[in-house]
Design a protein around this nucleic acid. Sequence first.
DNA 1: CGTCGATGTATCGTTCCGATACATCGATCC
DNA 2: GGATCGATGTATCGGAACGATACATCGACG
Lengths: 208, 208
Amino acid sequence: MLEFAILGLLHQSPMHGYELRKQLAGVLGGLRSISYGSLYPALKRLHAAGYVSTDEPDPRAPLPADAPPLTGRRGKVVYTITAEGKERFHELVSQAGPEAYDDGGLFGVRLAFFRHTAADVRLRILEGRRRTVERQREGLRASLSRTRERLDRYTLELQRHGLESVDREVRWLAELIDRELTDSERRRGDGADRGDPPAPPGEAPERP
Amino acid sequence: MLEFAILGLLHQSPMHGYELRKQLAGVLGGLRSISYGSLYPALKRLHAAGYVSTDEPDPRAPLPADAPPLTGRRGKVVYTITAEGKERFHELVSQAGPEAYDDGGLFGVRLAFFRHTAADVRLRILEGRRRTVERQREGLRASLSRTRERLDRYTLELQRHGLESVDREVRWLAELIDRELTDSERRRGDGADRGDPPAPPGEAPERP
DNA sequence: CGTCGATGTATCGTTCCGATACATCGATCC
DNA sequence: GGATCGATGTATCGGAACGATACATCGACG
């Protein structure tokens, strides 16, 4: 999941790890942040795989068990996506399998980078997500109506609130799907009538 | 977090690991389930700490690198909470620090076992949770109004939906707190007027 | 009688998190 | 001038939880 998000952000511009973390929190809606204990290992993996490059060309002198103070020339590191990284990102961004929508976290990240995602893939992910959440909702409904009498009021409230949340998410997804369909239809119409380019919708208009 | 939930469930009756997992999923509202990769290590920890006991008295014969098929007499194991475990649970259930409400997952579990929690602790946890979520909401609002123009419509939708969810949670918590206060007042009144026992509210009425 | 789904125990490798240490730099305060 | 404080910044450690998987038993159903 992090792999996708990091490549997506670096795709826009090179960054420090610190900045990466802040952007990530912003994109995910502020609730879900990520910790350094995930970020730096992930960057290391991406670097090892050749998907990102650093400006500092590995000043990793061994110095084993040296002076305990260890004044270790801690320099700032700028991470840049490589050509292979961009390729990898476009490969990831065009996947629409269950892994893209079964996990809510990854789905959020996918949605945040929808502007790099083809229209048909967008639609498949949204519909997949809807089905997943609908199934959750049905399970929840069944469980609730089965055990309503045996639950104390706190557990009941918890489940009621959870069910309402899931319900709202389904409606939200339905709206997104609707808009997606309307846009694609309008785009087809325009394309046939006037030959407009099929620009992905929702792109922030460039402000010169 | 698991420690609390497991002890809470075993507090009601002894169970197999499998049953434990199902109950846990039910209590948490069906969305958040937990995997065996968490459950069995957690049970092992609790067993090592002396908080739960098993019926099978450890038939762990060494047999190192024996026959690869290894027909290993896999018996069912019933986990039972010990006296130390009950003590531990009551210790945990009376804590109202930030750890009880800063993490949403743990908060959910705490709420699910509110019927074992004293009224003042309940109130402190609910109010703490409300403050936490309110802070999240303010951060989200600020971030959204700051960056509204630069976001594409998908990210915007993501944040809008997130904000609405958080908003709903705040209102939900406010309702729970209100009820808590009303009940405690009513309870005081009843106690003074008629000497009713201070039974915790919301208990499922026993059906004989 | 076979096989299929539910019940059941358990581990492996991996991802991710929380806490923490260390370091630099600008602003603000006294 | 200098002290201190918060933001920026890199990094690791131990542990918690996950997803996938293997293995095993058993009742039901065709």
